[in-house]
């Protein structure tokens, strides 16, 4: 049975409909990629799963329980943790304090301060510095580490390579493999298709708020991807 099942999810910003009957699934321990152009609804989809947007209960099921529309802070207690687009590091907190806030409602699990520092050694070196002093890549590491501190069962990663240099993106994806190796179910949103196709076991492409393609990366040709991505 799927650990995460999103069924016929529609989401609105006021009267604007951003998602149209999106359905997707992730099995326990699986890494699932959500790709698509700007404005395709990827972030909206993650925000709906994380409880930031109001959606019907049955639209999002976690291990069989309908949890759609539960508040985000409650979902964190059930192990749903989102690393938001743009990092959103707390500016008045140090690196270590940012990580500790991630553990505010921590569940038991493999991730501790020490393990996060193992994964991202640069954070250990900068633990006493204010969050905003970090570079973009370091801030992304901090945002991911902060999410891990909650010991997620389902980790939602939004636009993780946005605005970062290719070398840093490679490092981040290496870390994602380690995280997936702990058995964490992961939903990754990114515009950088090449990296994400190597990492994910299943891919969904969104276009104009609807799923335009799904499948296993090996089964998808570049031409089919391009068609689903751009609609040409």
């Amino acid at each position: 049975m799927s650990f995460l099942r999103v069924r016929r999810l529609s989401a609105f910003y006021g009267s604007f409909q951003a998602l149209f009957d999106v359905s997707l699934e992730a099995s326990e321990g699986e890494t699932v990629a959500v790709i698509g152009a700007n404005g395709a609804g990827k972030t909206t989809c993650l925000r709906a799963i994380a409880g930031v947007l109001p959606v019907p209960a049955a639209a999002v099921c976690l291990a069989g329980d309908p949890v759609g529309g539960r508040p985000a802070h409650e979902l964190v207690g059930r192990g749903v943790v989102m690393v938001p687009e743009g990092r959103r590091i707390f500016p008045s907190l140090t690196v270590e304090e940012n990580l500790l806030v991630g553990a505010y409602r921590s569940r038991p699990g493999p991730w501790t301060l020490a393990r996060v520092y193992d994964l991202f050694p640069i954070l250990a070196a900068r633990r006493r510095q204010p969050g905003p002093n970090l570079s973009g890549g370091e801030q992304q590491m901090l945002a991911i580490g902060r999410g891990l501190m909650a010991n997620p069962r389902l980790l939602l990663l939004d636009e993780i390579s946005l605005g970062l240099a290719p070398l840093i993106v490679r490092d981040l994806y290496r870390a994602l493999r380690t995280i997936a190796g702990e058995g964490t179910t992961t939903l990754v949103v990114d515009q950088d298709v090449s990296q994400i196709m190597e990492l994910a076991q299943r891919v969904y492409c969104l276009r104009k708020g609807a799923v335009s393609l799904e499948g296993r990366p090996a089964e998808l040709t570049r031409a089919r991807l391009a068609a689903a991505y751009f609609g040409v």
């Binding site: 508040p71 964190v76 707390f90 500016p91 806030v101 409602r105 909650a150």
Partner: peptide, 11 residues
């Protein structure tokens, strides 16, 4: 600092 992100941390 950032109420929405704090909520995503379970606060």
């Amino acid at each position: 600092d950032d109420q929405e992100t704090a909520e995503l941390m379970g606060i």
